[in-house]
Design a protein around this nucleic acid. Structure first.
Length: 492
DNA sequence: ATTCCCAGCGCG
DNA sequence: AAAGCGCGCTGGGAAT
């Protein structure tokens, strides 16, 4: 096609440009669509179908309570300048100059140079690096003169981090519009970021405290649904489907996965078989403020993804030996998990390809013998499946409840929408929970990931004093799902 | 003046 | 000695 650019004005020029872009895309599609197998085509069509609800969410945005936002900004700015004054005073006394808490370079010169404190190194990608992150600074805090300085620096960082969210530019109509990228990640999860017009920000990493500034529209109430222990259940599903070891999934169905894990790891704690009493036992302190259940939860999650006892011990601030003992008990209780790890390593050697229960395929281009590649591969299936599960549910809510609800946000394993207040929220919740109830079957076993519904008038968590309008668990259970779960637990 | 990379840190 | 994974944003500071 020949275009004489002198013959067209700039608007028409842009149209021609766009048209040619589309033609090229269409041409490419003609070639690569032949390479799609049935599953890939399904995933591709699914991603395209998600464009409608995503565009709707992006255009709608999330209403921001301007009063709360400004109040927060004013208070944090005040705190920041106060803290900076103290930091500068202390720094002046020590090296005769102010100190920037956000400059690793200055902090290293200050602590390791002028103050002559022991250098803190961290290991990353095979090399060791001088660090001034939270973990490093906390180690310096044991020194008498460093402690108040470290505390001030950490607090400044904390305040500045929150300020950066609150100070994000929002739109003229008082709404924050994030940009969702449907096909931006390796796993099929969405990412979120500043939008094409330069306003908004990543909405998937906002702390519970700051979520309070996001509110429903007048006459509407927010409803959120999150998937319960979704990734863990997907791990259990892999163990069952691949090796017939359903122990981990069964533990999830038994009520509380982490308490159940406690029973298997520490059988001699005097378990009663009664849910409430056993939870009390699991909540007993095990080591330095961590309950048995805490250990099962964090240690279990880390172990599922091939965390080393050394690293997990560092994060939990417990002895390495303890995590070694934990992990060995954990892998004995759920033998399918280490088998699944070995199976994944084998897949990397043989095909470098993994396929999730939802049919999403990922090729691994890293070195098959590299631990880092193995870890990516192990994390892929549960993480990807949970994303697809949530997004399929989200799409179904959009498709079948569009006349009553408006989608607002997605945070990987949770979806938020608003509905007119005059409607029965129990009814809305029941219907949405049914739509996200996506089950898989295999050899008489079933994967069920229940959802938990919460409602309120702002995005923060409910607190009688601090946030009475926040999201509060809806006390209705979905009778259908609960009954079937109880039934399953009895069979097991 | 602008661009680019890194360190640090928030969420799931 | 010792790397859970997946993202995006900010600010510092060097490079251009």
């Amino acid at each position: 096609m020949k275009i004489d650019s002198s013959q067209i004005n700039s608007d028409a020029g842009r149209q021609v440009y766009n048209t040619l872009d589309c033609c090229l895309t269409h041409e490419i599609f003609g070639k690569i669509s032949k390479q799609l197998d049935d599953n890939s085509r399904l995933i591709y069509n699914f991603e395209r179908a998600l464009q409608a609800p995503v565009l709707e969410m992006m255009e709608r945005g999330f209403r921001v309570d301007q009063y709360e936002r400004q109040k927060g900004i004013a208070s944090l700015r005040e705190q920041a300048s106060h803290l900076q004054f103290w930091l500068d005073s202390m720094a002046q006394a020590i090296w005769g100059a102010p100190l920037n808490a956000q400059s690793p370079k200055q902090l290293a010169a200050f602590f390791y140079g002028t103050m002559r404190l022991p250098e803190q190194w961290k290991y990353e990608k095979g090399s060791r690096k001088l660090s001034t992150d939270r973990e490093a600074l906390e180690k310096l805090a044991v020194y008498f003169y460093a402690r108040p300085i470290v505390d001030t620096i950490l607090e400044i960082r904390n305040v500045k981090k929150r300020l950066s969210v609150l100070e994000t530019e929002i739109d003229f109509d008082g709404r924050m519009r994030t940009s969702y990228n449907i096909a931006g990640t390796e796993t099929g999860r969405w990412s979120s970021s500043e939008n094409a017009f330069g306003t908004g920000t990543n909405l998937q990493n906002v702390t519970p405290e700051l979520r309070k500034i996001f509110v429903s529209d007048p006459g509407f109430k927010l409803l959120g649904i999150d998937l319960e222990q979704a990734e863990s259940r997907e791990v259990g599903w892999q163990c069952g489907v691949l090796f017939g070891d359903w122990s981990y999934l069964d533990a999830a169905y038994g009520g509380d996965l982490h308490t159940l894990a406690c029973k298997l790891i520490w059988p001699q704690l005097g378990w009663t078989g009664e849910k409430k009493a056993d939870r009390t036992i699991a909540d007993r302190i095990f080591y330095r403020g961590f309950s048995y259940r805490d250990m099962a939860k964090r240690g279990g999650h880390g172990s599922n993804y091939l965390g080393t006892p050394f690293t997990m011990a560092r994060h939990l601030k417990v002895p390495t030996k303890l995590m070694e003992t934990f992990q060995s008990a954990y892998f004995t209780a759920f033998p399918g998990i280490p088998r699944w790890h070995r199976w994944t390593a084998q897949q990397l050697q043989q095909s470098r390809l993994l396929v999730t229960p939802f049919g999403r395929r990922r090729h691994f281009f890293g070195r098959p013998n590299d631990d880092a590649t193995l870890r990516e591969a192990i994390a892929f299936v549960p993480q990807s499946s949970t994303g697809d599960r949530m997004n399929l549910g989200l799409w179904r809510i959009w498709k079948y409840m569009r006349d009553r609800v408006q989608l607002i946000a997605q945070v990987h394993d949770a979806v938020y929408f608003q509905f007119p207040e005059h409607l029965d929220e129990n009814e809305i919740a029941r219907e949405a929970l049914a739509l996200i109830d996506i089950r898989l079957q295999h050899n008489g076993h079933e994967l069920i990931v229940p959802g938990e519904a919460k409602s309120g008038w702002n995005w923060g968590n409910y607190d009688a004093e601090k946030n009475p309008n926040g999201l509060k668990k809806i006390s209705i259970s979905t009778p259908d799902i609960r009954q079937r779960l109880d039934g399953l637990a009895r069979i097991l």
